[in-house]
Amino acid sequence: MPAPARSRALWLMLTAAALVLLSALSVATGTRDVGLGDIAAALGGHVETIDQAAVAMRVPRTILALLAGGALGLAGAIMQGVTRNPLADPGILGVNMGASLAVVVGVAWFNIASAHAYIFTAILGAGVSAVFVYVIGSLGRGGATPLKLALAGAATSVAFSSLVIAVVLPRNDIAGGIRAWQIGGVGGATFERILPVLPFLAAGFVISLLSARKLNSLALGDELAAGLGERVAVARAVAAFGAILLCGAITAVCGPIGFLGLIVPHLCRLLVGVDHRWLLPFSALGGAGLLLAADIVGRIIARPGELDVGIVTAFVGAPFFIWIVRRQRVRDL
């Protein structure tokens, strides 16, 4: 086996082991300290004590954190590949906030209540936002440059955030729930909340992972990719659709969680390189591990309360974003 392949296989095993360790830690960590006997009993379906009930509640939370982190990490890698922009991220490009605005409007004006209505509305909002940002970023000379897309996405996020406040402000009946959801978190997860979103996540994961070869072609530049027989617009649209499915579905369940899609692909490139056939699955695994770790940290540092995972990722992601901006020359973006 060549050295790069051995290195990637080693990182794959280490990442898988870290996910197993983090999952065990997540099940065991919370406002109550529980013993191994209670953990084993709860995982075996026996919920007879408060400690066992606490463990049973942490299991769906752990699963949702893994799914959300994997989806956002993979979506971030897809968006960076589609736009060839190192600053691309579902939050920075306005996709998460577009999904959020759509859900808020749906709740406030159309009284949507079912899980599937939330999911379809969020995916629609994410898609419209992505198209809007791309159109705005394409205006002027040079087309959709990475810098123009980042600026258009940032402006769109701010505008949509203000619209969310404007929609919620006169509605005291929904304001509390919307504000809590807007922070972004995996607390209160149940299997009933997770099951409706699984088909959308499965479709998003499959479409995104199958786009790896096309993203490798797009990385060479549009003209060279077209010369190799790639339909550039179609390849870009299909990959972006997979990312939109992932972002919209997770935002519907967890609220907008920022910066994860920015951090994870950069870290994974350091480990496995720029080949999207490796980068995409590693970004999914890395995102799952990072979000689960952030959720665990949020439970530990604020005992007996907890910090929502969206707050923890913001604390980590904002300095990382500043570092990326300072590291990249503006003319190279």
Results as ranks from 00 to 15, higher is better:
3 A>D: 08
3 A>W: 08
7 S>T: 14
8 R>T: 07
11 W>R: 06
18 A>P: 05
19 L>T: 10
22 L>G: 09
23 S>N: 09
26 S>Y: 13
30 G>Y: 03
30 G>M: 08
32 R>A: 13
38 D>N: 03
38 D>V: 02
41 A>N: 09
44 G>A: 12
48 E>W: 06
53 A>R: 08
58 R>A: 06
61 R>V: 12
76 G>Y: 11
93 L>K: 09
113 A>D: 07
119 I>M: 07
121 T>G: 08
122 A>L: 06
123 I>W: 02
124 L>S: 15
126 A>Q: 00
126 A>G: 11
129 S>Y: 03
144 A>Y: 02
148 K>R: 15
150 A>M: 11
151 L>D: 10
155 A>R: 00
162 S>V: 06
166 A>I: 06
168 V>K: 01
170 P>L: 01
174 I>G: 00
176 G>T: 10
187 G>K: 11
197 V>W: 00
198 L>N: 07
204 G>D: 01
233 A>K: 08
237 A>F: 08
240 A>W: 00
252 A>E: 03
256 P>S: 12
287 G>D: 12
289 G>Q: 11
295 D>M: 02
301 I>W: 12
307 L>S: 08
312 V>D: 07
312 V>C: 13
312 V>T: 13
313 T>W: 10
321 F>Q: 03
321 F>T: 06
328 Q>E: 11
330 V>S: 09
